[in-house]
Structure formats: C-alpha cells, structure tokens
Nucleic acid binder design. Structure first.
Length: 873
DNA sequence: ATCCTCCCCTAC
DNA sequence: TAAGGTAGGGGAGGAT
C-alpha cells in the first residue's frame, strides 16, 4: 500500500514537471500566435489541437504554421486528454498499438481543409481505416432481453443512467480518498497569483469586503456535458444543434402488441389522479391540473422512442430538452445532429476535471456528479488574495484548456446561491452573486430552480398560484408546513429567501447500495426470472464488497405491467405503464452474501406470487449498511468463510428437497477440471492469489482471519458447517487465544452434523461451486494487469500450475460473458505467442485447455467460435 | 416521541 | 428498435 502511494506521488511529480514544460511551450506558441495576430487568416481549425508524430508531408513545421494561422493549436507533446488529433503518415506497429485509441489522421486532412477553406471531416483521412488484427466474429443480431445471460453487462455498458450514477459515487469516493492524503502544495494557486500580477484584471469588487463576510462557495458545472465531451472529437459539429442519443434517426418499427395512444393515455390519467371515469369534466379544471406536457406528446406510431440524454445550447434554443424523445425532437428540428454516446470520453473529461481541481487548488470539494461540484473557496482566496471573480475566470480558463469543454460557475455565500448563480451564468459563463443583491435576485427565481422542487412539487405550488420565489415568500411557514410537511415546508421557506445553512459534505458514507433494471425485463417463466434475480444479487454483493460493507435489510422493488396496459410497451423493451411494489425484509445479521440476499428476495417474490411474464422491472436494495469489522461476532464468521474457500470441499451443490422446506447442501466430488483450484496449493509466491491480492488482505491473511472473498456475517445458520476434523491444527494455533477458543467451540458444535445446509423456505435448485465464487476474486482485475500477470507467469515459471491455468481460463470466460470478447481475444493471442517460445509440452496443453473453455463459452453465448491459433510451430 | 415499512419524489 | 440507474430525503400511517 505504502509503496504504491510513493510511486504514485513520484509519478505525479514527474507528471507535474512535464505539465509545466508543456505549458511553457504552449505559452510561447500562444504568444507567438498573438504577436503575429495580423497573420491569422481564418478560424478553420478552431477547437482542433494536433500532435505530429514522425515524418510527415507537409512537414511538422508547416503543419504548425497552418494551425497557427487558422485558429488551431499545435502540441509539441502528445497530451492524451487535450490533443484532439494525432497527425501521422505512417506508424510502426508498436506505436500504433500504444496510440490506437486516439484519432490518428493523415496530414492531408490539414492541407486539404485549408485548400477547401473549411474544416473537412477527419473520418476520410484516418490513417487506419480497417483495423488490423481485429477478430471478425459474427454475433447473431437479435434483440436481447433480460432472459439472456449477457444482458445485464450489456445493459450496464450502454446505460447512461447507470453511468452517471456510478460515476457520481466514484467521484465522491475519489474526494474522500484524496482528502486522506496530506497535500500541502497547490500549484494552481501559484499560477493564479502570477496571472493576477500579470493581467491585473480589474475587478469591480474590492477583495477585503467579501473575505470578511464569511464563507464563499463556488459551484462548477460543465455545460451540456455529454455534448461538450462528445464534440472534443467532433469539432466540426460545434455551434450546431446536437443531441446525444442511442437512436440514429426515426427508424422505429411498429411492433405487435403496442398501442402508444392507449399507453400514453394511462400515464396522463394517472398524473391527473382520475380514479373514477365521470367522462364529464370541467375543461378549465383539467387544463389547470394537467401537466404542462408529457414527454410522450408529439410522438407518432413509428417515431423513435429513444431519449435524448443531452443536447447543445443551439438545440435548446429551438425548444429541444434533455430527456425529450428523439421522434419529437426531430420534428422540432429535422437537422438536429444525433451523436452517439462516448462513455470513455465522459470518464476522461470528468476525471481530468476532478484531479485538476484537487491536485492544483483545493481538497475542499463536494462531488455532486461527474460534471458538477461545489468548492469552499476560503483557503484559495485567502492564500492567493484573488477575488472570487478572478478565481472563477482563471479556473474556468484552465478547465477549458485541460478538458476542451466549457463550464459555468456560480459564486455565492452558500451552496444554494452558488448553484442559482451558475444557472444564471450558463452557458460558458460565471456569475458572482453579491451578498447585498440576494433579495432582488431571489424575487424572480423560478420555483422549479429550487433544489427539491420537481414536477410534482412544482405543480402543487402552481395550483397555489406560486411560480416564483417572490410569490413563494409570501406564504407563511405554517402554511407551507401544513401543505408539504415539516421538513419540506421549512426548506421551501428558507430556500425561497436565499437561505441555506447546509455545510459542504466532504465525507462520503454510503447509506444504501442497490441494483435495479427496468429495461428489457421479459421473462417466459419462473426459472428465467429467478436466474436474473440471482444475477442482480451477485451485482449487489459485488458493490457491497467494493466498499467493504454489509447490509442488514433487503428491499425488493418490482415494476409489474398494469392490467390495463397494452401487452407490449411503446418503447422497445421498455417497462411501459406499470404498478410498483416495494417490500423489505430484515436479516438477522448484516451480510453481502449474494446467496443470502437471494434467499430473502426470493422469499418475498414467492409470497407476492407474480406471473413472471408480467414483470417489467426488478430492483434489489440493501439498507442499514454497516462497516465490516474484524472484531466480536464477525470474526468467527470471517474465519468460517475463510475455511469455506480453503477447504478441499470445492464443489457443493444445493439440492432440491421438495418434501420439507430445507435445502440440503451436500458435498459432491469436484470435477476434474476444477481440481485444486484456489486451495492452499496455490499460495506459493508468483501464484495468482499473491499477485492480485490487495495488500491489506495480505496483512489480514497473515492472521488467518480474512480473505478477499470473506463474508463477514452469516445470518441464522452458518452457510457451511466445518467440522473440527477438517481443520489443520496449525491453523488454529496461529490464532489469538480468544478467537481460537471461540472457533473451537463452534467447530465442536458442528461435529455431529453430517451435512452442510442453509435454511430456505422456498424449494429451488441452486448450484454453488466454490471455484466459481472464488473466480469472482478476479473480476475486478484490469485487463492490462492480467496481461502483465500472464507475461510474468509464462516467462518465469517452468511448468504451469493448474490453479493459474484455471484462473486465466475463468477470467477469459468472464470477459466473454461481459461481451469483452475482443479483450479476451487479445489475451489469448498474447498467451499463444508466449507459449510458442516455451519448450515444455505442459504449456501447450495449458493453452489448449484454456482455449477449450473459451470456445465452450463462446458457443454457449454466441453460437460462434473465436478464431484463434490451434497449432504450435 | 421514535421507529419501521412502503411508498413517492428528486437529482444527476 | 434501445439500453427507463441509483442514492438520498421525506411523508403517511402504523407499531412500539
């Protein structure tokens, strides 16, 4: 752990040095460009920054001149997050591999664009049109729903909501972790100081007065994030109406069982709160209560139902909004440019934003989401003597340079005011809300801009004749509280006056963990639905393990097709018009164990007795989270779980027993192919476990208390009963006395039991293989890490160990299941090359064993084999 | 009073 | 075709 940290710091220092050097060169470049401003001929390359790699024609120098004269930027070094295009005429394969994720374009792109007098699409000038060495696998093209095994990962890979949600938690954790390190050096503050000296930006506000008036908060929000990030690689679309969506146009087909009109009618009816069908309605009354518009308005039978995740300001001017359906948006603006998602780019930009601020300015950051955060500026302003306005200007300038994306910032004396200021500043602007002008400012703020006021609350307020904060402030606290409840009433009362005493929240502590899918849920029978629920439980387990916490209550959330709803939803594989149910169950002990969660969930599911084909959405949530402890009651169960993955009882099956309500776990002999995997046979140096095990776990393993895979708490009955006779005595001797006695007692109590069992009221068949469970250990391993391991493994070992073999095999099969087939392919090729150089036959056998497993998985999932080498030279 | 469960709402 | 997740806050109403 420690070593890793030092390494990181060292790297950051080096990175900082390079960064400084780059900036210096760029400054010179900018100065030169500015000095020669009479030579600037056009802005053709505005937003484009190139890095020239190797020999080109026109030469690097000429390309540099072309860029400078026409609004572009020339980078002397490749800067992965900033350089938009790499220019090259040819590249050695090794270098190509290194750079292949970037846009590599022929130099003619620049010269031709110049000739044409406009920016041409770079796509026609890509250096590699067909990517060499890519496997051509014919995947069956059919719609996937949740009954198919690869659905969940494929869905997560394509869900924008999943992405923004997971990114938000990621950055909250990032801030948390960053604040734990001892950072004293903030180079950005020095840059800001220097910049103020040089530019002497004249501020209308004096510096001292605000510093006296308490805290200053800044709210930073990227402008239409997905669009801006997407346009980094598509600068030719800047200043056009652009929208990010899955759809490519109005290509929707009419499907059987769909009745859009009927379905939309049901939504409107529910929103209006109609219970009875009087038919006779006072038209004015309806007008008043009816929602302003629903997102399904203006959609015809064959219009695309895809959602617009984000649209540019040019599109917003036309009336297009985020969340609008593509069909409707295209009617409003037929020239609307639809661009696909680029998840990797969003992650890159967001990461740059956060690390830039935290490394260079302050750790007093509250992460709101991937593109939005609050800063407490007190320390920055104090040390730099900058005014809030200067800080905002400089910070926005740097963020734009680093990310190529615009952002807006608002500054105020509390979070609410900072946020409202940002709204006013957008797009690409900043606004400092002076303490003196708060009253005036608030009067005209729309109530829907107040945090917490959404569709429902906004509508309710509008029926009270309130639409601005000014109007809202006329209502008494009592009125608001009796109308909306105590807390909501009070916060409305304060917020409409610009008051907000909320502190920035730096310490992130999750209160719940959940996994939910309300798309693609179409099951034929109970087996399919149960199978999917199991996968969701696995997902929840994984997320709990990630944060090293356990949950004590399980909540199941279901969406069920409403009786009146058409058989098929208007949106392809959507949930349609549904009834929602949530039901929770308290466990006796907190856990992260997928099986135990499944037990609880399945019990509820069976009680509810819902026709699987009517399910449209399933969610599993864990509440009452607890940190894992290695003390008290938790220890013994940690130990037992440890035993579980260390005993030779590798393969256990849960057999159905329909006569009584118990599921009996019986030991079955392990299949040959799984022999000895993940047992202590493996724990020699260089073996997989030591290679990947996080350092902290090595520590706890020393005390034989915990493994990476440990489940600290097991409710009711232990999942696996281990008998005294199965335990290695030296194992017990190594333990502290108190723990040893505890465990010995437990083991003795188990001595007269001859089967492994868990309670389960619902009879069902489950297969639990310990190897399978253990292989989850490696799910988090990065592909690059795996490649590194494989290289080391093959090069340094004389003969392959079976456990390593199985691990690699499992890892590859998991990749394939995650639809990362191309990564798996690459790893197999690498493996082939390495093994080709080995003399020992056992290595070749290893290769064939692994390929056999892989092909089996491929056939199961895709009805296709992977094209890999089958003979050695 | 305070807690729990089952919602609903909101935000990104 | 399309990828409608996830976490947190809070209210209503009942149990303790």
């Amino acid at each position: 752990m420690k070593r890793k940290r030092n390494k990181t710091n060292g790297f950051e220092k080096w990175g900082g040095y390079m960064e400084a050097k780059k900036t210096k060169l760029e400054e010179q470049f900018a100065e030169k460009a500015a000095g020669d401003s009479n030579h600037v001929k056009s802005q053709i390359f505005k937003g484009i920054s190139i890095f020239v790699n190797g020999y080109t024609l026109p030469s690097a120098n000429e390309l540099k001149r072309m860029m400078m004269e026409n609004g572009g930027i020339y980078h002397h070094y490749h800067r992965p997050n900033i350089t938009t295009h790499i220019i090259a005429s040819n590249l050695p394969t090794a270098k190509l591999k290194l750079l292949k994720q970037f846009k590599i374009v022929k130099p003619e792109w620049i010269s031709d664009s110049l000739k044409e007098g406009k920016l041409l699409s770079y796509e026609g000038y890509l250096l590699f049109i067909d990517k060499p060495n890519q496997p051509k696998i014919d995947f069956p093209v059919r719609a996937k729903n949740a009954s198919e095994p690869t659905f969940l990962s494929e869905f997560y890979n394509n869900s924008r909501l999943h992405l923004i949600s997971t990114m938000a938690t990621t950055f909250k954790h990032l801030v948390n972790d960053a604040r734990k390190r001892n950072q004293t050096d903030y180079p950005g503050r020095q840059r800001l100081k220097k910049w103020i000296e040089q530019n002497g930006v004249k501020d209308m506000l004096s510096h001292d007065s605000e510093l006296d008036s308490g805290k200053i908060f800044m709210h930073i929000d990227m402008d239409c994030f997905f669009v801006s990030a997407g346009l980094v690689e598509r600068p030719e679309l800047r200043n056009l109406p652009v929208a990010v969506t899955h759809a490519k146009g109005n290509l929707s087909k009419k499907r059987e069982g769909v009745d859009r009109g009927a379905e939309f009618g049901l939504y409107v009816k529910r929103w209006r709160g109609d219970d009875d069908e009087n038919g006779e309605e006072d038209e004015e009354e309806v007008q008043e209560i009816r929602p302003r518009s629903t997102k399904r308005d203006g959609i015809d039978e064959t219009d695309s139902m895809a959602e617009i995740a984000c649209c540019s300001y040019e599109a917003r001017k036309i009336g297009i909004k985020n969340g609008m359906l593509v069909g409707k948006a295209l009617k409003m603006c037929p020239t609307l440019k639809l661009i696909p998602y680029n998840f990797e780019q969003y992650k890159r930009v967001a990461h740059t934003l956060y690390t830039h601020i935290m490394n260079d300015y302050t750790l007093d950051v509250e992460a709101v989401s991937c593109d939005e955060l609050y800063l407490d500026c007190s320390h920055i302003l104090e040390t730099t003597k900058a005014s809030p306005f200067e800080l905002a200007t400089f910070l926005r300038k740097e963020i734009k340079e680093k990310t190529q994306c615009p952002c807006s910032t608002g500054i105020g004396s509390n979070c609410l005011l900072a946020r409202l200021a940002t709204k006013k500043a957008k797009p690409d602007g900043q606004f400092y809300l002076e303490p003196g002008s708060v009253m005036d400012f608030m009067k005209n703020i729309d109530i829907s801009d107040i945090p917490g006021v959404g569709r429902t609350l906004g509508h309710k307020l509008s029926t009270l004749g309130v639409s601005t904060c000014g109007e809202l402030s006329a209502l008494s606290l009592e009125t608001l509280q009796s109308e909306f409840g105590n807390k909501t009433g009070l916060s409305l009362y304060k917020h409409c006056r610009g008051e907000d005493d909320r502190k920035l929240n730096y310490e992130y502590k999750p209160k719940s963990v959940s996994a939910e899918v309300n798309y693609g849920i179409r099951f034929k029978n109970k087996e399919e639905s149960e199978n999917f629920v199991r996968q969701l439980c696995d997902e929840v387990e994984k997320r709990l393990d990630n944060i090293e916490m356990n949950g004590k209550t399980v909540t199941l959330k279901l969406m069920i097709r409403n009786a009146e709803a058409p058989k098929e939803s208007a949106k392809f594989l959507g949930h349609g018009f549904c009834d929602n149910i949530t039901k929770s169950s308290s466990l006796t002990k907190s856990t992260s164990n997928s099986l135990l969660i499944f037990q609880a969930v399945n019990k509820i599911l069976n009680q509810l007795d819902i026709e699987p084909s009517d399910l449209r959405g399933i969610g599993i949530q864990m509440n009452k989270l607890e940190n894992r402890t290695v003390t008290g009651a938790g220890r013994i169960e940690n130990f037992i779980s440890n035993m579980k993955s260390n005993t030779k009882t590798n393969h256990i099956s849960l057999n159905e027993n329909t006569d009584n309500d118990k599921i009996v776990l019986t030991k079955v002999s392990e299949p040959k192919s799984l022999q000895s995997s993940f047992t202590h046979n493996c724990n020699k140096p260089k073996s997989v476990i030591d290679f990947f095990k996080p350092k902290e776990d090595l520590n706890s393993r020393k005390h034989n208390i915990k493994t990476t895979n440990s489940k600290s708490n097991i409710p009711h009955e232990p999942l696996v009963n281990i008998k005294m006779s199965q335990v290695d005595p030296s194992f017990l001797d190594a333990l502290p006395t108190d723990l040893r006695l505890e465990i010995e007692n437990e083991l003795k109590a188990n001595e007269n039991q001859n089967s492994l069992y868990i309670e389960n009221e619902n009879s069902s068949t489950m297969e639990v293989t310990m190897t399978e469970e253990s292989s989850k250990l490696y799910q988090h391993v990065q592909i690059d890490q795996m490649k590194e391991f494989i290289e080391e493994w093959v090069v340094t070992e004389n003969e392959p160990k079976l456990c390593d073999n199985i691990m690699v095999s499992k890892y590859l099969c998991n990749l394939i299941r995650d639809t990362k087939t191309e990564d798996a392919y690459e790893i197999i090729r690498k493996l082939y090359r390495l093994i080709n150089n080995k003399d020992h036959l056992a290595w070749k056998q290893s290769y064939f064993d692994i390929v056999k497993d892989v092909q089996e998985t491929m056939l199961n999932l895709y009805d296709a084999k992977m094209k890999v080498e089958t003979t050695f030279k």
